[in-house]
Design a protein around this nucleic acid. Structure first.
Lengths: 136, 136
DNA sequence: CTTGACTCTAAAGTAAACATTAGGGTGTAG
DNA sequence: CTACACCCTAATGTTTACTTTAGAGTCAAG
């Protein structure tokens, strides 16, 4: 059994827009398994798996470009697992940096908000005062 | 003493591009204190303070739009500190959500990377296997 | 056979925060 | 007086991940 879907059917069943599928195709991430006589795209379960791969990898913080690399590593039998692991670890380091940045922001903002009484004229607001302070 | 700077002087001393200053002006964030006879922008210390305000607020995670709100709250004597504090707390909540997202990504990737031996054909890579797995 | 849902391609728009380019004045050092 | 650095405006480009629009062909139901 072949069970092919049109782009609309695949889109509905996986919860994405048809244009998103065409966009992924332009990026080389997903190819239809074929076309109808009238040039409609046809997809099979391989496409469903690829699409889920993409969504899972996105949820892990990979960009579409990186996902393309992962997919091509998977497609090349000659490729080494080390490349995949390196990509994952590089991404982990990346995420850690972003977390640290956000923690710094949060701490800074927290300190400011704590010292703000929450009412009164903005002229006396310690948050604005700190942001406007003159030193450094 | 007036000590006015041209846009280039301000840009150099504060480490931004002149175009960035013109861009901020289009957004209503910074106004030159005046113009020369030949229409050159002139800035004074007020602009320096505004610019530093913008950079500090950016470092705390505020968008330029939000920074515009902060600046206008500061400019309006009728405004209340509560508005500023609310903006800050909203931003803190925002940052916390992003940190949680990143922590989840990091944990997910960490688990995958741990189970990957780091060499061998990608066909046996547990990272790719997980991303491609069929269930759910 | 017509209507409405669906599909096609190519191009342009969106958000954020700028950077770059084009075309043209200005200011000053030598 | 002529380089050459610097300034001006307006428009377009950049990145990411899509969405929207325009114009046109296709398929199933009634």
């Amino acid at each position: 059994m072949k069970s092919d879907f049109t782009i609309g059917a695949l889109a509905r069943s996986e919860g994405v827009a048809t244009e998103t599928l065409r966009y992924y195709e332009r990026l080389g991430l997903i190819e239809p398994s074929g076309r109808t006589a009238s040039n409609y795209r046809l997809y099979d379960m391989t496409a469903v798996r690829q699409l889920r791969f993409i969504r899972r990898a996105q949820a892990l913080g990979f960009s579409l470009t990186e996902i393309g690399e992962l997919l091509s590593l998977h497609a090349q039998p000659a490729a080494d697992m080390g490349d995949v692991k390196r990509l994952a670890e590089h991404k982990i380091a990346d995420i850690e940096r972003r977390i640290e940045d956000l923690e710094r922001m949060k701490a800074g903002l927290g300190t400011l908000a704590e010292n703000c009484p929450g009412h009164g004229p903005t002229a006396e607001c310690p948050i604005l005062a700190t942001l406007l302070r003159d030193e450094n």
